[in-house]
Every structure is written in structure tokens, then in C-alpha cells.
């Protein structure tokens, strides 16, 4: 644990430039991952009620005609 935290400190936190750029890169990644995660939770929670769950019925019907 101690060695890991020392490694973490030496690689990321020690230089402010590295620290700040890690924060911004992390924010970018977090933003996308968070959106995807919430979207996934939302579709799971509301399964069967959303438009994308019923869309296939009507698109297929159009193609069949």
C-alpha cells in the first residue's frame, strides 16, 4: 500500500503540470463514462418504456410494406 501510494505520488502528483493535465484528462474521461453509465442505468431502469424499446416494431413494419 505504501509503495503503491509512493509510486502514485511520484508518477502523478509530484509535478504540478502532470497533476493538472491528469485532472483535465480525467475530467474528460469521467464526463463520457458518467454519461454512458447514467444512460445505461436509465435504459435498464425504464426498460420497455422508452422509444428505443418499441421503435423496432414500427421500423420493421415500414420495411415490410
Amino acid at each position: 500500500m505504501a509503495s503503491f501510494s509512493t509510486t502514485l505520488y511520484n508518477t502523478v502528483f509530484k509535478r504540478n503540470s502532470v497533476y493538472v493535465s491528469t485532472i483535465f484528462a480525467g475530467a474528460f474521461a469521467f464526463n463520457m463514462a458518467f454519461d454512458v453509465g447514467i444512460e445505461r442505468f436509465w435504459s435498464h431502469w425504464n426498460q420497455g418504456k422508452l422509444w428505443k424499446d418499441i421503435r423496432h416494431k414500427y421500423v420493421e413494419a415500414e420495411d415490410a410494406e
Binding site: M1, A2, S5, T22, I23, A27
Partner: peptide, 17 residues
């Protein structure tokens, strides 16, 4: 060293959010 890394990590996490 754990204490130091934790503090930086928390501040970094706040920055990210």
C-alpha cells in the same frame, strides 16, 4: 506516504468532478 497520496487524490477527484 498513504496520507499524502490520499490527500492529493481527493483534491484531484474534486478537480475532476
Amino acid at each position: 506516504s498513504v496520507n499524502r497520496a490520499t490527500s492529493y487524490l481527493m483534491i484531484g477527484a474534486m478537480g475532476v468532478l
